[in-house]
Amino acid sequence: MNAVAPLIKLESISKHFGEGSTRVDALRDITLDIEPGSVVGLLGPSGSGKSTLLNAIGCIIEPTAGRMTLDGEVVYDNGWLRSDLRRLRLEKIGFIFQFHNLLPFLSVTDNVALVLQLAGYDDDDAKHRATQLLDYLEVGNRKQAYPANLSGGEAQRVAIARALANKPRIILADEPTAALDSQRAGIVMDLLGKVAKDQSAAILVVTHDEKIFSRFDVMFQLRDGQLSSDAA
């Protein structure tokens, strides 16, 4: 019996949009546990509910029913929703987007340091940690650059640095390799795997990118809002 508590625990999570004839069931009775140190792939065709599930775990949208626990804290329980979701996102969740979403008016260092400052680090400590992370991700040489001047791979690594800055235990990645070539995609996935192990983090990756399927510890498939199978 495995004694490790899951970082992401979903119990019969459902989400529907609209009512009556316009009702769309985006998630149906999803039950899922993701343990620390694991990199999990979430597959599925367009409209299957992948983004809805990612948004629900990321505390961006409220489920309709079920119970959701993140890092041991109940976030949603059949209509009850925690009120400090933004704080929870800041402390526990790191987001990696397909289009990196770096703030265009901040330098590379400031993009990463911002998250740390929001979490309470002072200016110098935030910049120091941001620089360390950027060096670790091999974009330290671009720390003064602005996002508009970065290549796709560089921007994605900066986005990963931002997601990791506050040492979150949950990392949600939406198509993180879609804009990258095979080699860069491999580097990004290696890195996520390393972070999962080093930080005992749970990493959930939504992807269509077949070339990274082999990097997942577990893969789930979503179809019509239902977690249909463990694709692994």
């Binding site: 987001f95 703030l103 911002l114």
Partner: peptide, 16 residues
């Protein structure tokens, strides 16, 4: 709008 949405997503408080 997109930058503001990103700020909210990464946990920036309303006052920021």
């Amino acid at each position: 709008m997109r930058e503001i949405a990103t700020l909210k997503l990464i946990g920036a408080p309303d006052r920021a």
